[in-house]
Simulated assay, not measured.
Amino acid sequence: MGQEHLPLTEGVYYILLSLYEPRHGYGIMQLTEELSKGRVQLGAGTIYGAIKTLVGRKWIVALDDDGRKKEYVITDLGKTMVEYEMKRLNELYENGLLMTKGEKQK
């Protein structure tokens, strides 16, 4: 498995989810807090450091700046990463259910 398929941090996962619609950093912070019901709160330093990394990986792109706050949106590659992570998390969840209910994997 290449580094591009490593598990995503929770923060990166929420940032990517937030960018299915164009948003600026503060909007990402707000939506992440809303989606996680306040459990995940991303600071400005975390957001902007992650944005720089995600732009470098081509998982998100900056939209044309028209003088307002810079907005970002997820790319097709970023969407692929989210789908991969959802499958990984689902496998963890399903295996957890199997084992905690005392069933063995077939």
Rank of each mutant, 00 (worst) to 15 (best):
L16R: 02
G49Q: 11
K37E: 13
L42T: 09
D64C: 00
I60M: 05
K104V: 10
I74L: 10
K52Y: 15
M99G: 13
M1F: 14
M81N: 06
K101Y: 15
K70F: 00
L16M: 04
Y93M: 13
G43N: 14
E85P: 08
T46Q: 11
R39S: 11
G11A: 13
G78S: 06
T46P: 02
H24F: 04
T9Q: 10
L35A: 01
T32S: 05
L54I: 08
D65P: 09
I51H: 02
L63I: 00
L31C: 02
K87T: 01
Y14M: 07
Q30Y: 08
G38L: 03
L98Y: 13
K37Q: 14
L54F: 06
E21R: 08
R39T: 09
I74S: 09
K70H: 09
Y26Q: 06
G38M: 03
Y26F: 07
L77Q: 09
L63F: 01
E85K: 03
Y20W: 09
E71Q: 13
R68F: 01
K87G: 01
K70A: 12
K70P: 13
H5N: 06
Y72M: 02
Y26N: 01
H5C: 08
I51N: 02
V73F: 03
Y26A: 02
R39W: 11
A62P: 13
E94W: 12
Y72K: 02
H5I: 15
M99C: 04
V55D: 11
T53C: 07
L16Q: 02
Y20E: 15
L97V: 15
K104F: 15
T9P: 00
R39A: 10
S36I: 05
E21D: 11
H24A: 12
L35S: 06
G96Q: 02
N90S: 03
L97Q: 05
Q30S: 13
Y13F: 13
L31E: 03
N90R: 04
I51A: 06
T80G: 12
K58P: 00
T75P: 11
N90T: 00
W59V: 00
E91Q: 11
L8W: 06
G78T: 02
K79Q: 04
L98I: 14
L97P: 09
Y26H: 05
V73M: 09
G2T: 14
H5D: 09
T100K: 04
G49I: 02
M29V: 07
Y84M: 01
E94P: 00
L54R: 08
K104N: 10
D65S: 06
G11S: 12
T75Y: 03
Y20K: 15
T100A: 03
I60Q: 09
E71W: 00
M81V: 13
K37A: 12
W59G: 00
G38R: 05
G102E: 10
D66T: 03
R57K: 15
Y14E: 09
Y72F: 06
N90E: 10
Q30W: 07
G56W: 08
K58I: 01
Y84N: 04
L31S: 04
G11T: 08
K101G: 11
A62H: 04
L92M: 12
L17F: 05
E85G: 08
G27F: 00
A50G: 06
